[in-house]
Design a binder for these strands. Structure first.
Lengths: 147, 147
DNA sequence: GACACTAATGTTACAGTGTAACATTATATC
DNA sequence: GATATAATGTTACACTGTAACATTAGTGTC
């Protein structure tokens, strides 16, 4: 965990990103939680430290963090998670397998898809954002369905 | 336009999907609009015909239509659009380029990505849903950004 | 047709996500 | 310290979606 925080600090320094206290707190909350969090969940955590915090606090910070590439927003279930660029070697493109049932997310970096995406980007003159969300059913939830 | 409606009817017949009047109206609204609609936009259209219609009406119908493969829900900007299976030859997998700025959507069927997705599905035992949303900036909005 | 049963729809109330507009507080710069 | 700028707090709002229950419409059985 400490490792992740250190990498975030290093990343910010390297990209001259200045985090305020509140922004640091929020990214710390996201880092420390094992699963992706919704804005509300982050808010509840933050309010334990800063009772004045409210929705705006969260959304402004999240917008900032997303814009600076520190976290991903997963549109499918409105969750936010640490961007893996910060603690793995993969560089640019990532894909996230999102389970429609349980919301579980698996971040992958698949060369074949990445390559295809780059081709699409050229063909359609479409500037790719990250990550690509691939929705479906995880192994567990497929099993549940057949019970 | 008429063509699309006919294909929908044929698809429903072939898959023994029975649409109620209201469901038919809603899919007609989605079909007739050129761009993907939000639930609210569909509601406003529907209320012109059925003033009693409300949010529940829409969401129940949309859920039904999504489940039966007639329409896609685009999580990124909460819009619904006709599923292209109904009027094109492509069979299973489709990808949608969603512009983060203007919301414009381009549906594509890219063999390379489809192939990669099938591989991922096997590797991770992940049952794919449709479509894959690829977010980014469309050509127009890239231009705007540089002005 | 009367009845029961089921599915669809209407109604009300709520929770969650996100933004706009403006007020206040911190922070930096001179 | 005065001033400008950025961040945060506050209030109010719009939109998306669901839960729970009431009502209506449709279907089959007798």
């Amino acid at each position: 965990m400490q490792l992740k925080i250190e990498k975030i600090t290093a990343y910010c320094a390297a990209n001259s990103i200045l985090l305020t206290n509140q922004q640091s707190l929020i990214i710390k909350i996201i880092t420390e939680m094992s699963s992706p969090l919704t804005a509300n969940e982050i808010l509840h955590e933050l309010q334990k430290i800063n009772p004045k915090a409210n929705r705006m606090t969260i959304h402004r910070a999240l917008e900032f963090l997303v814009k600076n590439g520190l976290i991903h927003k997963i549109a499918f279930n409105h969750t936010y998670k640490l961007c893996s660029h910060l603690y793995c070697k993969h560089d640019h493109h990532c894909q996230i397998l999102v389970c429609q049932e349980c919301g579980n997310q698996t971040e992958i970096h698949h060369a074949q898809i990445t390559e295809a995406l780059l081709e699409i980007s050229k063909t359609y003159n479409f500037k790719l954002a990250n990550p690509v969300e691939i929705t479906g059913l995880c192994t567990k939830c497929q099993m549940k369905g057949t019970l």
